[in-house]
Structure formats: structure tokens, C-alpha cells
Amino acid sequence: MFLSEAVAAGIATAMREDGTVFLFGEDVDRSVLGPTKGLVEEFGQERVRNTPISEQAVVGAMIGAAATGLRPVLDLMFGGFLYVAMDQVVNQLAHIGYMSGGRVRLPVVLMAGIGPSGQAGAQHSESPHAALMQAAGVKVVVPSTPADAKGLMIAAIRDPDPVAYLMDVSLAGSRGPVDLADAAVPLGRAAVRREGVHVTVAAMASAVPASLMAAEGLSASGIEVEVIDLRSLVPLDLDTVCNSIRKTRHLVIAETGRRTCGLGAEVAARVLECAWETLEAPPVRVAWPDVPVPFSPSLEFACIVTEGDVAEAVTRALGGRKPSAA
């Protein structure tokens, strides 16, 4: 199954089991990126509703709906569009649970496609995961396999709190096995995708397959890389990362987003806080430079996280030299 189809399969599972689950969003019937394709045929236009291009009002409406008995799933299409609704996402959706002293819980799933997908330009290539991790009140999941795409979606919809479900657009057409049964993947647990003893690579989204390819290549030269798919950024499964570095003593974080204050910065800081003594060398971050994603194919390729970037970072981590700034 394609990853984007697995997303839809997860939504369908949740919609079949719970009549209060409704799907909203821009063009969710046609779903040009694929993750909601086919759902309108099964559930009809009452439960699968195209919304106007009004991100603020629509995210706000999801809040009101969730506070009064619905479990809405909203597809914002592209991660960059989420910024249009930033007041509703952060000041409202994320914070109401806390500001209400726990009186209100908002089971809203915000879906967005993230990352460069082939010369879409900066505004259609954003990955707002780090901003959401900082928001205090939104869980964040980023599947990298079709099985997780389905399982994390089921768990996200069942969750009592807001969940940002970010689909790496460059993975939408990737294939993999998917459990046909209800196979929820609990939020907050990372997955070890490949075992290794020399370096731990903690990765997200399309940086996971890039890291797996890099690991294959490095294996030929005797370097065994352990690849962890973080997949849930909030809550973040630090235990799995720390357990891994107790074995490998080296850490690389590979992120499909900008370097500053990103996932890599956070994981590195937390690991240093809790397991500083287990590392033999400083952690190394692989991330986009601090630029808007450029348009020109050569520049875009230079920006994104590739197999080569991860391999180089692993080599650098093992060299034990202080990583350079870029």
C-alpha cells in the first residue's frame, strides 16, 4: 500500500468505529496529495467536507466542534498553510486544555503535508514540526512507513488531545505492508528500524529512509548504524534513544527541517542532560540550513537531507571531531 493510502485507511478505520469523527479540509474529496482520497465515496459529503480556504476560521471551528462532541480531522494540505492559522493553533487549540485547568480537552487532528516534494518553493515545502513541539499542548506525529501512517492516524484520532499529523509529501508514494486490521500505533514510542552498534541515528520522516540507505552503505565499510524512527515528536520517546546510545555511544539526529531550535537541537540537548556521560563524541545534527526551502532543483537538493548527508554525519560523529557550524 502507498503511504498516502495508508493515511486514508487509518482515517476510515476511525470513522467506521466512531460516528463523531468527521473529516474537513481543503479539497478533501479529491485530495491532491492523496491522504484523504476515496473517503468521500464511503462516508459521503456530510462527514467528508470540503472547507473554504479560511485556515483561521476552519481551525477555530474545529476547536468549537471538538469542545462540543465531535472528533474532527482537518487536512490543511501543506504545512506552510498552518502558519495562516497560528493564533488558532497555538493560542487556542494548543493552550485551551491547560488554560482551562483541564476542563476542556480538544480531540482535533490537524493533518498537513510537510517537506520539499520537488520544486514546490518555500511556502509549499515547510515543516512546522519544531514550532509545534514548542507550542505546549499539541502532540506531533510524523510517520515514515505506510504501517505507521495508518496506525498513528488511528491513535491520533482516538487521542483526547490535539495531534498534528504530519505527512512527509516526498514519502506519499512510498510503498510498504499495512495491517488490514485495526493496528493503532501508540503515540510516544519510537521504533528501532535497524540495529547497529557503532552510531545511533535518530531520524524523522524522509530522513528515516535516507538514514537506512546510509546505514546500508556504511555497513560495507564495517560501520554498523542503529536507525531509530522517532515518529512521535511529542511525546518524544527519549528512552529508546538513550538505550541505543548506551550501546553505540555516538548520536546523529537527522531532521527534515531547519537546524536552529529544531528536533535535532532538542534531542541533542535532552540526551546531553540525561546521558551525557554515555557519549564518546558530541552529537551531530543533520538538518536543512537556516533558509527557506529554495526553488531551483540544484539548491533544493543541496538543502534537503540525503543519504550522503547522513553518511557524512555518521563519519563525523565517529571521528570525534567537533562538528562544524554548518
Partner: peptide, 24 residues
């Protein structure tokens, strides 16, 4: 549904609640 420190931010919350009222 809440008092609100952001001007106009509660308006769509009422609209969403009305959506619940209608759909449910």
C-alpha cells in the same frame, strides 16, 4: 466555550460549536 484574550478568536469557536449542534 471560553473567554478569550485574542480579539475575534472566539467567533470561529461558536461556529464550530454550531457545526456540532447541526451534525449531531
Amino acid at each position: 466555550l471560553g473567554t478569550n484574550g485574542i480579539v475575534a478568536a472566539g467567533i470561529p469557536h461558536a461556529v464550530g460549536a454550531a457545526l456540532s449542534c447541526k451534525l449531531l
